[in-house]
């Protein structure tokens, strides 16, 4: 289950997250961002490097799962 939440309205499409994703799971153009749920392992590296907090680890989703 994808636990990384994106707020596209905040995104500046800079690509920093793409550069650290070990799975190449992030698809980014100059005006869209999307995470491939099948590839993403929720490792959160993208969350940590995002300069402007666009990507967050969604703890609530984890609770829902439990």
């Amino acid at each position: 289950m994808l636990l990384i939440k994106i707020t596209p309205d905040k995104c500046d499409y800079c690509g920093t997250c793409v550069g650290v994703c070990p799975e190449d799971a992030i698809e980014l153009t100059d005006s869209t961002i999307d995470i491939d749920e099948d590839l993403c392992t929720n490792c959160s590296k993208c969350v940590w490097v995002c300069p402007i907090d666009v990507l967050i680890f969604d703890k609530n989703k984890l609770k829902d799962k439990e």
Partner: peptide, 24 residues
């Protein structure tokens, strides 16, 4: 910084998150 094109060619381009500076 994304460096996806190289990845598609099979090169390992991804950067350790500790060495990636997120800048604003």
């Amino acid at each position: 910084v994304e460096s996806r094109v190289g990845r598609w060619a099979g090169l390992s381009t991804f950067v350790d998150f500790r060495e990636m500076e997120g800048a604003y």
